[in-house]
């Protein structure tokens, strides 16, 4: 239990630091929110009035306090460009992006784990070379390139998937998955490389351990030795790395969602940045950071379940 409390405490501390950094950075950025709302040609008195009503003339510390308190109580304010409550907007987009993030992670793991195990079992043979070249190819080309390839091959030539757009899962669940598949596949290929390498190296280490020899000496089939005895030990580190990749994924979806016209968090972030929608930027950054941290916390807790050596003392 102490372990969980410990981790929760550090999550809260980090979230607090994130609010500080986000607030500081968005305030250093040039640009005036009031002017962005009213346009550059607007009446100076009206501008001043808006500033006053938005609280932009308050001391910075007070503005920060207001913002954090608002985040805490669910009063996230309104987006300047969408003219909608931020909380509502983010919730909707978070679901859309969640689908892509989970799907691309599943694709990446489904490809990387077998490929990495295969490479480790046939270490220093041709299979190893094939596996590492394949995963290197995935990572050495940028995500958006894979996105373009996906659109060309699966949407344009084969016509199996729609090339862009997003529909609400409540309206057409299958359609949502279809539209999420291509961007997820493109992201998954990029993720796969790290995970393959991680699987390969942990499996290589595990396979050279004495307990693997003991398992073979018991007469267990090689299949059991590798996919049960060895993989049960290797999967923990792989999942940890996968968890760390979640942060990287949220960076990648900005490009990928824009490319596919998929209106999720990435797309929203891009719009917010483009239009200097400061309240929206602040909230989006905060939510992404929180999601990344909570996933990592979950991954660490999962690791505890997998590996009995990590004590919850």
């Amino acid at each position: 239990m102490t372990y969980v409390l410990n981790r929760l405490l550090s999550v809260i501390l980090t979230l607090f630091l994130i609010t500080l950094v986000t607030f500081a950075v968005t305030n250093i950025l040039p640009g005036d929110v009031a002017m962005m709302i009213m346009g550059t040609q607007s009446n100076p008195e009206a501008l001043e009035g808006l500033r006053e009503s938005l609280g932009l003339n308050d001391p910075l510390l007070m503005q920060y306090g207001h913002w954090v308190w608002g985040m805490f109580t669910g009063e996230w304010g309104n987006s300047l460009i969408f003219k909608k409550p931020i909380a509502e907007l983010l919730l909707q987009k978070a679901v859309a992006s969640g689908i892509i993030v989970v799907m691309s992670m599943v694709i990446a793991l489904a490809l990387a784990v077998p490929l990495g195990v295969w490479a480790a079992v046939h270490r220093d043979k041709w299979q190893d070379t094939v596996s590492s070249s394949a995963s290197l190819l995935g990572v050495s080309l940028p995500d958006f390139f894979w996105g373009i390839v996906m659109i060309l091959v699966f949407a344009r030539w084969l016509g199996w998937f729609p090339s862009s757009g997003f529909v609400e899962p409540s309206e057409d669940p299958l359609g949502t998955l279809q539209r999420a598949f291509l961007p997820s596949l493109a992201l998954g290929l990029g993720l796969m490389a790290h995970l393959t390498r991680m699987t390969r190296s942990t499996m290589t280490g595990i396979l050279s351990q004495e307990f693997i020899r003991v398992a073979r000496a018991k007469g267990l089939a090689e299949r059991t030795v590798i996919w049960r005895y060895a993989l049960a030990n290797a999967i923990g580190p792989v999942i940890t790395i996968a968890g760390l990749q979640i942060g990287y994924l949220f960076g990648s979806i900005i490009v990928m969602e824009s490319l596919f016209g998929y209106t999720g968090m990435g797309w929203l972030t891009y719009q917010a940045l483009l239009n200097r929608d400061l309240p929206l930027i602040q909230s989006t950054v905060f939510v992404i950071a929180a999601v990344v941290m909570v996933t990592n916390l979950l991954v660490d807790l999962l690791y505890v379940v997998i590996d009995p050596r990590i004590r919850l003392g």
Partner: peptide, 24 residues
């Protein structure tokens, strides 16, 4: 060999600390 190993011939190794699978 799968029938012989562990069944008709048993084997003990040097390192008791690493001879057992830590997650089972």
């Amino acid at each position: 060999m799968g029938q012989v190993r562990g069944n008709e011939i048993g084997m003990i190794f040097q390192e008791p600390m690493t001879a057992l699978n830590p997650v089972f």
